[in-house]
């Protein structure tokens, strides 16, 4: 009985927080837009019964998504932005995690604190701060002009570069923490052993440190990649008007067109795009574990 309850809790959790909302979104995706409140049709009505209700649903909105290249372009562009920013987050986060893991033991809690500290400030305020730093009259340009590196201000704000900066900054802790925990567990004598067996520092890093922090790298990359794919706030605040992301398209369908069904269809496809790689990844992990 106790075991049943223990297992039931996460499943109820999953059901309540994921499956039920997903079912609602899916249902809206299969409905038609209408001038009504809420703005779609059919509404579920007990009197008519479930069969009649289901008969009204169709896949029109998904067909629609294939007919306009906007959606594919937005998905691809989101994918590109997510891949690139995950890569840069890894590039920036790994050395920090590495440094933290190599730091003297008594410093580590402090370093960890410093990584988490920004979370204590509102995310929006931090993004607005970046607007102040990156704008044409902002601190960065003023500084660069002051030291004489540039004579004309660089246009960074409202471009994709600003989006990347914002994303890397915001999601850095999500990369650092799992990588750090993987690196912290790494036995220093493994590196020495690799060097002892003929590796230079660099090859030891490639052949031992990187493979052994692989779980942290993968976990961190997923923690960054998945939310970035659907990111809306950072591109809309820091990005230019030509920063095309699926989150923005979804927003537009939902808010500008009031077309909740199409917006829901976009969301469902986005979710499928995310779920498929995750499932594949987990399968792969499982297989590896079984093989061992």
């Amino acid at each position: 009985m106790r075991r049943f309850v223990l297992i039931a809790i996460p499943y109820v959790w999953l059901l309540a927080l994921f499956l039920v909302p997903f079912a609602i979104v899916l249902k809206i995706a299969l409905s038609d837009a209408a001038v009504a409140r809420p703005p779609y049709f059919p509404q579920f009505d007990w009197a008519e019964g479930i069969a009649a209700f289901i008969a009204e649903l169709d896949f029109e909105n998904f067909v629609w998504l294939t007919e306009d290249d906007l959606y594919w372009k937005a998905y691809l562009s989101s994918l590109k932005i997510a891949v690139i920013s995950t890569f840069f987050t890894l590039l920036a986060g790994y050395p920090i995690a590495y440094g933290m893991a190599r730091a003297p033991e008594e410093w580590r809690p402090t370093l960890m604190m410093l990584v988490i500290l920004p979370f204590w400030t509102s995310f929006l305020i931090r993004v607005y701060a970046w607007m102040g730093i990156l704008s044409n009259e902002g601190f960065l340009n003023q500084f660069l002009m002051w030291i004489g590196v540039i004579s004309e201000p660089l246009t960074i704000l409202n471009t994709n570069s600003a989006v990347y900066i914002g994303i890397v900054y915001t999601y850095l802790p999500f990369m650092i923490l799992p990588v750090y925990s993987a690196l912290e567990r790494l036995d220093g004598s493994l590196i020495e052993a690799a060097e002892d067996l003929g590796c230079s520092r660099l090859t030891a890093f490639w052949l031992v440190t990187i493979p052994l922090s692989k779980t942290g790298i993968i976990a961190g990359s997923f923690l960054v990649f998945i939310p970035v794919l659907g990111e809306f706030v950072i591109p809309s605040l820091l990005g230019g008007s030509d920063t095309l992301m699926i989150g923005k398209v979804l927003w537009e369908e939902f808010f500008s067109n009031r077309d909740w069904p199409v917006a829901s269809a976009v969301a469902v496809v986005l979710l499928l795009l995310l779920v498929i790689p995750i499932v594949l990844f987990q399968r792969n992990q499982q297989k590896q574990q079984e093989a061992e």
């Binding site: 306009d68 290249d69 906007l70 937005a74 562009s77 008007s241 030509d242 095309l244 537009e252």
Partner: peptide, 12 residues
Amino acid sequence: ATRLWTKVKSGT
């Protein structure tokens, strides 16, 4: 109109 506007904003 919205689609047109998206195209104007994003070029797509």
